[in-house]
């Protein structure tokens, strides 16, 4: 995964140089495989081991940097979004099997202006290896990299307004994904569908027909958590690897779902305007806290 020095500085005061930081990270188990100076910033490419999905975000790495350098982690609280009340019927969300999708949220934002992203946003995304598309798509990607929660924006006008269903695909169904491939689906693959047809491969890739384009006015912003095994199987069966599937396969924090949705909504209002008219939640919003026993005497015994 790639992070940049300046982006990390949004969340933690760093008083050491980029090469010094690279060395500290490497010796803490976040192996920096390359460090490059680019456009006035430094890009760290870090190999993240499969046991640490919490490191698959800027904030996750910044948390580690804060601990390693004895500084405080500064994560701004997501401010609640501005609502225009009562202007729309809430969208129905139906989850066929909550084991496949423990949490699904949909936020509706109307009258956005889709346009190219500002330079700072384009630059940050490009430094971490993500192509700029338009302001809406870029914001969802930006939040993915920052918080580790993959988001997806649908063009609301292009789906059946009755609502969305998170369900297994039928063996006869097909979906044209945003990479232009026509995908043959089967019952092992989880999809987001409207009343008529699949509109996205859940947790892997969106559909072409409902993607946000320059003509889009109203959007449905999805923030959710999917079962890692389902995502892994779909990714293997279809041969698609995406930033989203990479994170869902390893595990995404339930608590980051609403934070990410809010953060994206605020950014969309700032960069593309629009009115929030609804936010729907289906599922559990918090993971159950676990007690983990640790015997200090045993820790000392293995040193």
């Amino acid at each position: 995964m790639k992070v940049t020095y300046n982006w990390l500085k949004d969340f933690v005061d760093i008083k050491i140089t980029a090469p010094q930081l690279a060395d500290k990270l490497t010796m803490a188990g976040l192996e920096v495989v390359s460090l490059q100076e680019k456009e006035g910033d430094f890009v760290f490419e870090i190999e993240i081991t499969s046991n640490r999905p919490d490191w698959l975000s800027l904030v996750g790495i910044a948390r580690e940097v804060a601990a390693l350098t004895g500084r405080k982690l500064k994560v701004p609280q997501a401010k609640s979004a501005k609502y225009t009340a009562g202007s729309m019927q809430p969208l129905a969300i139906q989850v066929e099997d909550k084991k496949d999708c423990p949490l699904y949220t949909a936020r509706i934002i109307k009258d956005v202006k889709v346009a190219p992203s500002p330079v700072w946003l384009k630059k940050r995304l490009e430094l971490v290896g993500c192509r700029s598309v338009n302001n809406i798509v870029d914001i969802t990607n930006y939040v993915l990299f920052e918080l580790g929660e993959p988001l997806h924006a649908f063009d609301l006008a292009k789906l059946n307004p009755e609502g969305v269903i998170i369900r297994r695909a039928k063996n006869s169904e097909k979906l044209l994904t945003i990479d232009g491939e026509n995908r043959q689906l089967n019952s092992n693959i989880l999809v987001i569908a409207d009343r008529e047809k699949p509109i996205a491969l859940a947790g892997v890739m969106g559909g072409k027909d409902t993607e946000v384009t320059t003509g889009t006015k109203d959007i449905l912003l999805e923030s959710a958590v999917f079962n890692p095994v389902i995502i892994r199987r779909a990714r293997q069966a279809l041969g698609i690897q995406s930033e989203a599937s990479y994170r869902f396969e390893r595990g995404v924090d339930l608590a980051s779902v609403e934070k990410a949705s809010l953060k994206a909504a605020r950014s969309i209002q700032e960069l593309a305007g629009g009115n929030q008219v609804g936010y729907q939640v289906k599922g559990v919003t918090k993971a159950q806290a676990k007690n983990i026993g640790l015997e200090i005497s045993k820790v000392k015994k293995i040193q």
Partner: peptide, 16 residues
């Protein structure tokens, strides 16, 4: 010689 923290499923703690 140096030990870097790492992850292997069959050891804990692990190092490269």
């Amino acid at each position: 010689m140096r030990f870097r923290p790492h992850f292997f499923p069959f050891t804990e703690p692990s190092a490269e």
